[in-house]
Amino acid sequence: MTNVIPLSAAIRTRSQAAHSSSEGAGFMSSLLRGERTRDDYISLVAQHYFIYSALEAATERMRDEPVAARFISDKLTRLPALEADLAFLLGGGWRERIAPLPATARYVARIEQVGATWAGGFVAHHYTRYLGDLSGGLHIGRVIRRQFGFETNGIGFYLFGDIADPAAFKDVYRHELDAAPWDDAEKERVIDEVLLAYRFNTEVFEELAGERGTAIA
């Protein structure tokens, strides 16, 4: 008898290397070591703004799609927090002072493409971003707060005030992945899209490192 591997476990196993590569990208690792400036951090927040603008626009389009709707929760919404963070960090004219990097633009284009036509692809990007935010993102927020002397202003993106138990929330999310009515071929497509999402994320970090230069001494 063949053991059936749950989709959530398959994604976790197959994406482990990509996840480690993304987490270890030079820009993020140097940021978390305290080797980057406040402006470097602002550049990261700006790229998140473009990514989540696309993802949350796709979320609105997917609300009535039967499978995608299982994963959608307003408790995850990040865009208002990102807007508040950028207003705090850059001031009232922040929208005119930010622009997407080429890697971010490619990432956004892919989210827009799958978020308009393909529930599985949307879920792949939704999973990669939000479950990452509820995992390592919480730690990142604490580190950034300490480094730059923030309270809650400037790190609102990393705060999920409406989710009392992130671990339980993630368990429910993974249960929905395992229960999704996708055949084996579609599950493979979803896994491939998760890997693509990690690749896009890593490319954004690489371009941030290139744009911002080497870490401070």
Rank of each mutant, 00 (worst) to 15 (best):
L76P: 02
A87F: 05
A68H: 04
T77E: 07
F71A: 03
G91I: 06
A99L: 10
L76C: 11
A69D: 14
K75H: 13
F71P: 00
L86V: 05
F88N: 00
V67R: 05
G92T: 06
R78F: 03
L90D: 03
R97Q: 15
I72T: 04
E96F: 14
E96R: 15
G93N: 12
L86I: 04
G91H: 10
W94D: 00
K75I: 08
P80R: 02
D64P: 05
D64V: 12
G92Y: 02
A87W: 01
I72S: 06
E83L: 08
S73L: 07
R70I: 04
S73V: 08
V67F: 03
L90F: 05
A81D: 08
A69W: 10
L86F: 02
A99M: 09
L79G: 08
W94A: 01
G93T: 09
F71S: 01
W94F: 10
R63W: 09
A68T: 07
I72F: 04
L90A: 04
L79H: 08
W94C: 01
D85T: 04
A87Y: 05
A84C: 05
A81F: 05
P66I: 10
R78V: 04
A81Q: 06
L76N: 02
T77I: 12
E96L: 13
P80N: 07
S73T: 13
T77M: 10
A99Q: 12
A99R: 14
G92M: 02
T77D: 07
I98H: 03
R97F: 07
K75S: 15
F71I: 09
R97I: 08
L79Y: 13
A84F: 02
T77K: 10
A84E: 09
L76Q: 02
P66C: 11
A68C: 09
K75N: 15
P80Y: 06
R70S: 10
F88D: 00
E96C: 11
L90V: 05
R97T: 08
E96H: 13
L90K: 03
F71H: 02
L82I: 14
G91R: 05
A69E: 14
G93V: 08
A84W: 01
R97N: 12
G92E: 10
